[in-house]
């Protein structure tokens, strides 16, 4: 591999994944490899288990949550089941939400929900994939519970004063998913098209789903 990349304009480092042999490993990379090898040698899990789990992690994305939300928008019975038992309702759509309970909180004209984990980084990973860095940041975890409207404004989300903001603080045993309100003007859209309006951030509750007509 060449050190030069063929152009000379000034810019920051490329988002470039070096070959793993190129650099010395960090202390914690060494620790990760050593722990994995020891656990495999001891038969706690196999190398195959590790590969399959890595694939499972990569296979999860906000598209899983979006599928669940879109179904809830078009099927009131499904929505009722989702609010009653999110893990079971997701399973109906072939989405494995895992064994840690997830509670879906519904946004309404008078109530807006937003999720956080003040103590650590709990997140509905099996419905949304791995969390964004800002969700795990000190600023988000510290401030959301005290000044949610100011934090939402930083995400470009302005809520009317008469809308109640509910901040849901997750734990290791209970995670939340926000069911956003279906945008106006989407009456003619089918479920797949609706799912494409549902972003990760609106299922966290920091933004609202885009209205396709605006």
């Amino acid at each position: 591999m060449s050190d030069s990349h063929g152009h000379s304009h000034p810019h920051g480092p490329h988002p470039f994944q070096p070959d793993v042999e190129d650099a010395p490993l960090t202390h914690y990379q060494i620790l990760q490899l050593a722990v994995a090898e020891l656990l495999i040698e001891k038969g706690v899990f196999s190398g195959g288990d590790l590969r399959r789990t890595l694939e499972a992690i990569d296979s999860r994305s906000p598209a899983d949550g979006a599928k669940v939300v879109a179904r809830a928008w078009v099927d009131p019975d499904f929505k009722a089941r989702l609010l009653a038992d999110t893990n079971a309702a997701a399973a109906e759509l072939g989405v494995d939400a895992g064994t840690i309970p997830i509670t879906t909180v519904e946004n309404t004209p008078g109530i807006h929900n937003v999720i956080v984990c003040t103590l650590c980084s709990c997140y509905p990973r099996l419905l949304l994939g791995l969390p964004p860095d800002w969700y795990k940041s000190r600023a988000y975890r510290s401030r959301l519970v005290r000044e949610p409207r100011a934090v939402l404004a930083e995400f470009g989300t302005a809520l009317a004063d008469d809308i109640e903001v509910r901040v849901q603080d997750s734990t290791a045993e209970l995670r939340y998913l926000v069911l956003p309100m279906r945008p106006a003007g989407t009456g003619g859209m089918d479920e797949d098209a609706l799912a494409r309006l549902v972003t990760r951030d609106c299922m966290i509750g920091v933004t609202l789903p885009d209205n396709p007509d605006t």
Binding site: D133, W134, R141, S142, R143, V151, D169
Partner: peptide, 14 residues
């Protein structure tokens, strides 16, 4: 245990 403490703006980093 940082819920409610002061902190700067949320950096939208990913």
């Amino acid at each position: 245990d940082m819920g409610g403490l002061d902190a700067g703006p949320v950096e939208r980093s990913e």
